[in-house]
Design a protein around this nucleic acid. Structure first.
Length: 476
RNA sequence: GGCGCUGUGGCGGAGCGGCUACGCAGCGGAUUGCAAAUCCGCGUACCCCGGUUCGAAUCCGGGCGGCGCCUCCA
């Protein structure tokens, strides 16, 4: 068994050979916390959570770092506009972000370092660069001289001369190269700042990832991940800083596809985002409220992590329907919080057709984490479970649950969480309503029973009559 | 303009040299007080044009289209 990963840096599938046998170190860029998180912020963590879960299932110990950028011009602007302190803003949105990840079942992240806690590691890092004349003082801060790093552009396939030819970059007489980037930004009056040998100021955007990854994972680590839009300049600059400073840095780079809407990416600067109602549909909290965290997670995992995901209501609904069918099939097996390693799952003796799907699921995951193909096998197992005899059906149901859990599906309690969104009043009222309906049915007053069901349906609540009485669920 | 990705059935979305992907929707049937849920059955798709091959959605060349990055972004 070996795991192959598409390395953006080499543009090839490469076998995962961790620096430390049996351990995988993973760093994934997280959000800048100054506003409500959008679904794109949550997709990366979900995707990499599935990666981490799979590696864990495969027996690796995974260290997974996901940073929080809590110092940034936009945060400062926001604080100034609202009158709040920047800390109040970042604390609020950091808490929201972590809460969203929990709702989406992201459980594998081992550290969420915050930029503001690592300034004292950044200063010596920048100091080293200055010492070697790789970084220099410009008018408003310390800048990295990109010409001092030979491989600059290797990740994004760019050459400095081409970049220079582009007219997009503002020319500044105090910079050595137009694409030099800021490592330390000197503070203007009233801005939050930290002392440094070059004057009070704050770190530039890129430096935190180079420094915090080193702090938490070491100078060399296995995988660096992030959204495709970070490839340039963010990741390119991270590489430049770290390598120019004698760090080997990341071996494998993984980039995730981006959220799209009607075939195109929605950028922060998209004019439509000015419309509050338009922007609201991309807020993670709203998407979760409408469709549920598990459905959102399932949607992300149905495709391949490198491909963009079109965020359309129809896709969400289809994903919700499909996922609920699997949940129903598994039924109360999902209540059990049993989490098996792959060895245990593979050791279980099975009928050949079940074993074939099990093997295909694993092969799909081993080959660049093809969750979409893996999930297809779950549906094939579901079909078998429905037509097999009791014993084999039971095996298939267990297998669906256990394999699914290797990528974060079928988490214990997730159905309750979604069906009764921590509203005890709603749950009690539903009990009351269903009791009355059961009485009506007992009295063969089907007209009343149907009216109750139809009116609940209009509220997106589905009532299901079963042998043990009626149950209800909220439709995505 | 540069770099990269991509074009699959109504929709979403894998596959990337030969075998039903899969899901959603739809249609027919079974079951059901009616529904829901569940079950059974049904679609033979790969942008265009050349080429390679016994065989191509899958490889190569050309064309046309879409998307991303090159400014903020996960």
């Amino acid at each position: 068994m070996s795991i192959r990963i598409y390395n953006t840096l080499t543009r090839r599938l490469e076998e995962l050979e961790p620096l430390v046998p049996g351990e995988v170190s993973l760093y994934v860029c997280g959000p800048t916390v100054y506003a409500d998180a959008h679904i794109g912020h949550t997709m990366g963590p979900v995707l990499f959570d599935a990666v981490a879960r799979w590696l864990t299932a495969r027996g690796y110990r995974v260290r997974f770092v996901n940073n929080i950028t809590d110092i940034d011009d936009k945060i400062i602007d926001r604080a100034r506009a609202s009158g709040e302190s920047w800390q109040a803003i970042t604390q609020r949105y950091t808490a929201q972000y972590l809460d969203l990840l929990a709702t989406l079942g992201v459980e594998t992240i081992t550290a969420h370092p915050q930029c503001s806690n690592h300034i004292d590691h950044m200063i010596p890092f920048i100091g080293e660069l200055v010492e070697h004349d790789i970084a220099y003082r410009a008018e408003d801060g310390i800048y990295f001289d990109v010409s001092r790093h030979q491989g600059y552009g290797k990740l994004s396939g760019r050459h400095l001369d081409e970049l220079q030819a582009g007219a997009r970059i503002e020319r500044r007489s105090d910079l050595r190269n137009p694409q030099d980037f800021c490592l330390w930004k000197l503070a203007k009056p009233g801005e939050p700042s930290w002392p440094s040998p070059w004057g009070d100021g704050r770190p530039g955007w890129h430096i935190e990832c180079s420094v915090m990854s080193e702090q938490l994972l070491g100078r060399a680590f296995d995988i660096h991940g992030g959204g495709d839009d970070l490839k340039f300049p963010h990741h390119e600059n991270e590489i430049a800083q770290s390598e120019a400073n004698g760090r080997p840095f990341a071996r494998i780079w993984m980039h995730t596809g981006l959220i799209q809407y009607q075939g195109a990416k929605i950028s922060k600067s998209d004019p439509r985002m000015q419309d509050a109602a338009f922007a609201a549909q991309f807020m993670a909290k709203n998407a979760i409220a409408s469709y549920g965290g598990a459905t959102l997670r399932f949607l992300f995992l149905q495709g391949h992590y490198r491909r963009p995901v079109d965020f359309a209501p129809d896709s969400l609904r289809a994903a919700g329907t499909a996922y609920r069918r699997l949940q129903r099939l598994i039924g109360d097996l999902a209540d059990d919080d049993e989490r098996l390693g792959l060895d245990a799952i593979l050791a279980r003796p099975l009928a050949p057709e079940l074993a074939e799907h099990r093997a295909a699921f694993c092969a799909a995951m081993d080959e660049d984490f093809n969750t979409g193909q893996a999930i297809a096998r779950l549906f094939s197992l579901a079909a078998l479970a429905r037509k097999s005899d009791d014993q084999q059906a039971e095996q298939a149901r267990h297998l669906i649950r256990d394999l699914g859990r290797c990528i974060g599906l079928f988490r214990p309690g997730e159905q309750q969480q979604e069906q009764h969104p921590d509203d005890h009043l709603a749950a009690s009222l539903m009990d009351l309503i269903l009791d009355l309906r059961a009485q009506a049915r007992q009295a063969k007053d089907y007209a009343t029973a149907d009216t109750i069901r139809d009116r609940l349906k209009a509220l997106d609540i589905t009532v299901t009559d079963g042998p043990k009485g009626a149950s209800w669920s909220r439709d995505g």
